[in-house]
Amino acid sequence: MKKILISGLTNIETTLQIKGFPLDYNPINYPFFGVNSRVSGVGYNLAKALKKLGSEIDYISLIGADLAGKSVKMTFEEEGLSTDYIIDSLEATPQSVILYDKEGRRQIHTDLKDIQDRVYPEEIFDKLVKKASILCLTNINFSRPFLKKGCELNKVIATDVHTIEDLNDEYNRDFMEYADILFMSDELLPMPPKQWVQKLWDEFGTEIIVIGLGSKGALLAIKEDDFIEVIPAVKTRGVVNTVGAGDSLFSCFVHCYNKEANPYKAIKKAIVFASYKIGATSASEGFLAEEELNQLYKKLNK
């Protein structure tokens, strides 16, 4: 199978279940089994999901040489994920706290520590990129130098800019410019998604665009076919926490596209994958194996 190279954030994620938003003040609560800490982060979520689906991957990331960093490495080893290209050069490992309610709504607080000021060794990327067919370059600063390199090597570049509202967004513009496969959420878009796609096509000529629409599904746009349509959501089980839904949609799409280069089929399977995933508490839980996904996909498409 063709290999996927992932560059992204690894952190320690703590989830806290609350009664609802807005959160009223009171001095102390005892949410038994409502507080959980796990390894997470966009890059890790992609690596774990892609491995569960059966993709062959390499994963590059930065962490700290602290207790949290040791937990990261131990978790990777337990799950059979390689730590060969995870560099512990940060002052501390990034962490996040996520509040979520029984309706699946969530609020994320992310502390990136000093990761945005650090670089990843380019010689390692230069070695790994030769074996990769798709580069999943998540929008963290240390991924930025790899965009141009991947383009020059004619590699397919896939990225997710998450919540975006401006084509000239200083932080995300080069990720959007270099992407062959571009994912984002509709949460902050300044106009209807179909109009936004036209602006992206006019500005960047992006070949494949996917806009997550939450409970409505996802919009798929294929420039070559002049195709822009909403692919509706499906329900596979009850919603527990929607955090990580976008990561799961992205990872499954990349896995399927890497195998068959069929974006229409890839998005339909990705929607099933993401629907099942949000029945779990953490962003890094609830991933289906490929055989499980295929069975569920066939069941829903009889």
Rank of each mutant, 00 (worst) to 15 (best):
A68T: 03
A68G: 07
I87C: 05
E224G: 07
L167A: 10
Y59R: 02
C136W: 00
T159N: 08
N262M: 13
D202L: 11
A49R: 02
K223F: 07
V156S: 03
S61H: 03
I4Y: 05
N141V: 11
S7T: 08
D111T: 06
Q198D: 15
Y257H: 13
K194L: 10
I60P: 02
Y120W: 09
G104M: 03
N168W: 09
C252N: 05
D88C: 04
G217Y: 00
P94E: 02
D169M: 11
E290R: 13
G286I: 02
G34E: 11
S89C: 08
I124F: 05
L90D: 00
I86A: 01
D117M: 11
R237E: 03
S133P: 15
N26S: 12
L135C: 07
E229I: 10
D24G: 15
A132C: 12
G279S: 15
S185P: 04
K199Y: 05
K52M: 01
S96E: 10
T14R: 01
M74S: 15
A158Q: 09
N172L: 01
G20S: 15
F175Y: 15
R38Y: 13
Y120D: 02
L23H: 13
Y178F: 13
L53Q: 00
I208W: 01
A47Q: 06
V210Q: 02
L188E: 15
D126M: 09
V272S: 04
I18H: 10
E91S: 12
E292D: 15
I63V: 09
I87H: 05
G214S: 07
T93S: 06
I157R: 04
K3V: 08
Q198A: 14
A233R: 07
L81T: 04
E290A: 13
D225V: 07
F142K: 01
C256Y: 05
D225P: 01
G212E: 06
K48C: 04
A47N: 06
K194W: 08
G34K: 14
I157S: 00
E122R: 09
K155W: 08
W196L: 04
K216S: 08
I164P: 01
I267G: 03
N45P: 09
E187W: 05
S248G: 08
E207R: 05
T159K: 04
M191T: 10
M184P: 05
I231D: 07
N258W: 06
